[in-house]
Amino acid sequence: MKNIKLLKITFFLTLILGFTSCDEGGDPDPGATSVVEMAGDWFVQLNGTGSYYHLSTYNTAADNGKEMWIEDLGTFWEFKAKTPVNTNELTFGGSNLASNYEGYEITINITNATISKGTATTSGGNTSDGISLDIEFSDDAGTVYKLVGYKRTGFSEDEH
């Protein structure tokens, strides 16, 4: 008799929990950030030749479509800065952008920076988005470096 009561209570509680689960309804799609078309990991080369360096571009906390982070993850110069963006034109850049990469503080100038959809050929022969930018560092003022490359595809033949 006790077991039947316990079974009924367990069944009743299970039903209540089942009907009051965490389903909030609606569209569970969280959407995308304001710079989704410009964000990603990139493999770039100095003047389009030689060794590959890793860049990342991603949304800021403001998610306002007016700026994004760009950083080289310590692979080229050790920089990380917020840069103004034009999401309609897929361009970015600015002057005297504050850069702080793990305590290494400089300013950078980014000019002629563009992202182009589906225009780059990867080192493995695949098609990807392209990126190109000119960058100058305050600790090497007067020298402008041109970085050219492609968006990371995830294919092993394109990794560096």
Rank of each mutant, 00 (worst) to 15 (best):
K8F: 11
V144L: 03
G93I: 09
S34T: 15
I70N: 10
G74F: 09
M38G: 03
F43M: 03
K8H: 05
Y150D: 02
L6M: 11
L97A: 07
T57H: 06
I70T: 09
A141R: 04
K151G: 00
D129A: 04
K117M: 11
G130Q: 08
K66M: 15
D134K: 08
G130E: 03
F11E: 10
G118N: 14
A62I: 13
F76K: 03
G154W: 08
F79E: 06
S99T: 14
Y104G: 03
D29H: 10
D129N: 14
W77V: 00
N112K: 15
F19G: 15
M68P: 00
T111G: 07
A98Y: 10
T60K: 06
T122N: 05
E159G: 02
G50M: 04
T10R: 14
K80C: 10
A62P: 07
E136D: 10
G40N: 04
K117Y: 01
S123C: 02
P30Y: 01
K66H: 03
K151C: 00
G65L: 06
E159M: 09
S116F: 01
G124D: 12
I16L: 15
F76H: 11
G26H: 05
N86C: 10
T91D: 07
A81T: 13
F155V: 01
A81R: 00
Y104F: 14
G103D: 11
T119R: 08
T57Q: 12
T49M: 06
M1R: 13
N88S: 15
Y104E: 12
D27F: 00
L73M: 14
G65Q: 07
Y104A: 12
I115C: 04
N64A: 13
